[in-house]
Write a protein that binds this DNA or RNA. Structure first.
Length: 554
RNA sequence: GCCCCCGUAGCUCAGUGGAUAGAGCGAUGGAUUCCUAAUCCAUGUGCCGCAGGUCCGAUUCCUGCCGGGGGCACCA
């Protein structure tokens, strides 16, 4: 609809120019918006204000000219007005909205899909939590955001790959091995000093107990071997737990990428050699430094320490080079906000390896403040006291958790209240939206009971009886969906879908309370079912993008 | 000290240059012989942190300041 109005305006400007009424052909792109006030029409254009200086005419005069040249063969426009400083307001003929419903039914699950991505290969890397402990709530938010962003991009025509990067190498893994090893010794009755920098959580004790059971050769190994054995065992065990948790959270990945595999394939060495040849690496104090400050970072960064060990950053450089080698046009990383200082050096590495900085984006997800009935729940990773993602989803359910994670812009801190998440009221919007879907399912079932044949009414519905203001309002809201999806995709902001769904749900509930869908008039009933089924489809599509289920019954 | 994010109704937050700035919660009053009351309807609330600047027009963009949060390792 918006597009049609744009075309009509563009055509009117052209016609006026050809007649010599508008002096200049310097037409800016036509922008249309939906005014907040109903009295300002369905659509509004500021085009005459923008053109005023180029055309050397008063905005209101330009508006008059445009209006007098409008050509509207389909009779979409009921009325136009010139308002304020020169807005042109368009009032759409109510019946012109009806075709939106046909479109929704025809496109069904693809309604709202677009091809703005044009098949470009894009990778979304998310969660990528170290296999040194279970996923906690913060990771859950990252998972929900990453998954929804991937869904959105895919729906917008990108060729999307989801990836999890496993830091299964380096210091934190040996520290994990050491932690488990020490707990094993403790279980064997030895008196040990458990260091501060080891992993403190109880899950380390559990792992120690398991490995003692499964590997009775452990006491025979020398300490280094035993630690390494513990490390490998623990990392694998934890990672498989992470996989399970994500899967029951509804998140799956196309690829799990091991950091260790980069070393095994010589990719880290190759990346460093490449950077040497590009002259962006130098030696100082026995270490190798990458000149990230040449690319906007505040200082240079070490890639090989003076003990010969490569840093985590070195692996990351190799990893991101390798992503582009795999043919991705764009690479998105979803990180916790505490990594934000890492962005400039990562950007530097992208640019130094010959890619452009806009091929790489980081989505920084802010922290989650967990509470229960308003009382904060302590979350300290160091002390090993944290609420795991599994704990939360077990308690409040996957749908509520995922939806709540997406009710804020990812860059805002999120308050997550466990009691609130279980409430079945308006406080908890996930049920508000799902309830729409369930109610419509029920309507359909009742309709069938009464002998309304679905296939038939989808074909024969005559829509002219859909003329109540609430009905037109509902259709207008449905018409906005594709645009919302596009902007959510382009900006990678899934919360736009969340808000839209809450809006649409409000419009539906209001309609439902005011009008009966199943009436004694068969034609009216068919028309209304046609409308509410379109609503149901859009709700279902939107929830799917968010990774939330659309229940038939509640 | 430097960097990033935030500052909008009593609370939690939407609003990527437009007209009279919105929603939920909370408060008050109402709605169910009838399609799911997990719903709806009605009634209030705002120096959009402050000060400049750009613009026909700024909550939105720019600069400075104030306030809140996070980050600043040869850690990951």
């Amino acid at each position: 609809m918006k597009q049609k109005i744009k075309e009509i305006i563009a055509q009117a400007m052209k016609a006026a120019y050809e007649k010599g009424i508008l002096p200049s052909s310097g037409f800016p792109p036509v922008e249309i918006e939906e005014p907040k006030l109903e009295t300002h029409g369905d659509f509004s254009s500021n085009i005459s204000m923008i053109m005023a200086s180029v055309q050397k005419m008063a905005p209101r005069k330009i508006a008059e000219v445009i209006i007098s040249h409008l050509d509207d063969p389909e009779d979409i426009i009921a009325k136009t007005e010139i308002a304020g400083p020169g807005f042109i307001n368009f009032f759409i003929n109510p019946f012109s909205w009806h075709p939106v419903l046909h479109e929704i039914h025809k496109k069904n699950t693809a309604y709202g899909a677009s091809n703005i991505g044009n098949g470009k290969k894009i990778q979304v890397e998310f969660v990528s939590s170290n296999p040194t402990g279970p996923l906690h709530v913060g990771h859950g938010r990252g998972a929900a955001v990453g998954d929804a962003v991937a869904n959105l991009l895919s729906f917008c025509g990108y060729d999307v790959q989801r990836e999890y990067y496993i830091n299964d190498s380096g210091r934190q893994i040996s520290m994990l091995g050491r932690s488990v090893f020490l707990r094993c010794q403790e279980l064997a009755g030895k008196k040990i000093e458990f260091p501060q920098d080891c992993y403190q959580g109880d899950y380390i004790r559990d792992l120690a107990a398991i490995i003692r059971e499964q590997r009775d050769d452990l006491p025979d190994l020398d300490e280094a071997e035993a630690i390494s054995c513990c490390a490998q065992f623990a990392a694998e065990n934890i990672l498989s737990g992470i996989r399970d948790d994500l899967e029951s959270f509804g998140v799956t990945f196309d690829r799990w990428y091991s950091e260790q595999s980069l070393f095994d394939a010589g990719s880290v060495e190759a990346a460093l050699t490449d950077f040497r040849s590009r002259d962006v690496i130098y030696e100082k104090d026995g270490a190798l430094w990458f000149k990230t400050s040449d690319y906007g970072d505040e200082k240079d960064r070490v890639v090989v320490k003076n003990d010969g060990q490569t840093t985590y950053f070195a692996s990351d450089i190799a990893y991101h080079q390798e992503k582009f080698d795999r043919g991705f046009d764009r690479v998105i990383d979803v990180w916790g906000a505490d990594h934000h200082g890492y962005i400039p050096r990562m950007r530097a590495s992208i640019e130094a390896s010959g890619h452009s900085r806009d091929q790489f984006d980081v989505i920084l997800v802010k922290l989650v403040n967990l509470s229960r009935g308003g009382q904060p729940v302590a979350m300290s990773t160091r002390a090993g006291e944290f609420v795991t993602l599994k704990d939360v989803t077990d308690e409040v359910g996957r749908d509520a958790a995922r939806f709540i994670f997406l009710t804020r812009h990812y860059e805002s801190p999120l308050d997550f209240d466990l009691e609130l998440a279980k409430k079945k009221t308006n406080d908890n919007p996930v049920f508000y939206v799902q309830y729409v879907h369930a109610r419509i399912s029920s309507l359909l079932a009742k309709g069938i009971e009464r002998g309304v044949r679905v296939a038939e009414f989808l074909e024969t519905s005559e829509l002219s009886m859909l003329k109540a203001p609430e009905e037109i309002q509902l259709i207008k809201t449905l018409a906005r969906y594709p645009e919302i999806v596009q902007s959510a995709g382009e900006l990678m902001e899934p919360h736009r879908i969340t808000y839209y769904l809450m809006n649409l749900s409000a419009a539906f509930h209001a309609y439902y309370n005011k009008h009966r869908v199943l009436t004694d008039d068969p034609a009216l009933t068919c028309g209304r079912l046609y409308l509410v089924l379109a609503v149901q489809k859009v709700i279902r599509n939107g929830l799917k993008l968010l990774g939330v289920s659309a229940p038939e019954k509640m």
